[in-house]
Design a protein around this nucleic acid. Structure first.
Lengths: 120, 120
DNA sequence: AGATGTAGTACGACAGTCGTAGTACGACAA
DNA sequence: TTGTCGTACTACGACTGTCGTACTACATCT
C-alpha cells in the first residue's frame, strides 16, 4: 500500500490543521486522530510536528489558544484548544488557492501529456 | 497572481526534475528554464536547490551524470548532463503513485465536502 | 572592452520534521 | 492497590532540503 511520506505532504500540514480548525476549535490529540481517519490511515502526523505547528502558527497569528475542560461539568484533564484567527482564515484561503495552482502545475510534469514548451 | 512557494512544492522538486529527465537527458540550466516555462512562470526553482538535488539524487542512485559538449562539433562549454537510472525510474513511478494519493487526501481536507469520519 | 547570458560551485544559515524521552492525569482490570 | 493503557502533551538535539550570497569561467553580442 502506498503511503504518504512527510516529505511530500509537509507543505500542507498547516493547511490541513487549519481546515480542521475551520469547522470547530480542536486540540492536538483530536486533530492527529482526525488527520489519520480523514486520510484513511495514509497519513499520520507525528506529535512533535503537530505541536510545533501549533506553536509556529500561534506565533504567526494564524491561530489562538484557550484552555478548557473536556466537558461542561469540568471533569477530566484540561486541554489546549486552538481556533483560527481572522488572519488565519485569510491565510487558509490563500493556501487553498495555492493548492489549486500547485496541483495543476505538478500534474503538468507528472502527466504523460505532451507539454508544449514556450521559448525561454 | 498566486505563486507557488517553495515550501508547498518542495516535496515535488525531485519528481519534477525526474519527469524532465525521463524524456531525455538534460542539465541544470536547461531544467531550470523548463520548470519555469512548464509552470508558466508560477514556479522558479532556485539554482542551489536544483544543483543540490542533482548531488543528492546521484548519491542515492536515482540519476547518473556525464559531461558532454553542447553540440556534436565540440563547440561551446561542456555541460554536466543527467539521466535517470533504472532505480530512478522506479523511484519516479513510486512518486507518481504517491502524488495521486496525496492529491486525493489533501483534497479531502481542503474541499468543503462534508467528511464522514470513521471512528478512531 | 564591457555587458549579458550560460553553466555552474561553495558555504553557512535557517526552518520544519523527527526520534527519543519524559511528565502527568484518568480509567479500567487483575 | 498496582499496573497498564489511553489521553494530552513538553523538551531537546539531530537531520535534511532550501535559501541567500558570493564567486568562477567561458561565450556571444554590442
Amino acid at each position: 500500500m502506498v503511503e504518504i511520506s512527510s516529505d511530500v505532504i509537509r507543505g500542507y500540514n498547516d493547511t490541513m490543521i487549519l481546515s480542521i480548525l475551520m469547522k470547530e476549535p480542536s486540540y492536538g490529540y483530536e486533530i492527529s486522530k482526525q488527520i489519520k481517519s480523514i486520510s484513511d490511515g495514509k497519513y499520520v502526523i507525528k506529535e512533535t510536528t503537530l505541536y510545533s505547528a501549533f506553536t509556529r502558527m500561534e506565533k504567526n497569528g494564524y491561530i489562538e489558544s484557550f484552555v478548557a475542560d473536556p466537558d461542561p461539568e469540568g471533569n477530566g484533564k484540561k486541554r489546549t484548544y486552538y481556533r483560527p484567527t481572522e488572519q488565519g482564515k485569510a491565510y487558509y484561503s490563500e493556501k487553498c488557492a495555492e493548492w489549486e495552482l500547485t496541483k495543476e502545475v505538478v500534474e503538468r510534469f507528472i502527466d504523460n501529456k505532451e507539454n508544449v514548451y514556450g521559448n525561454n
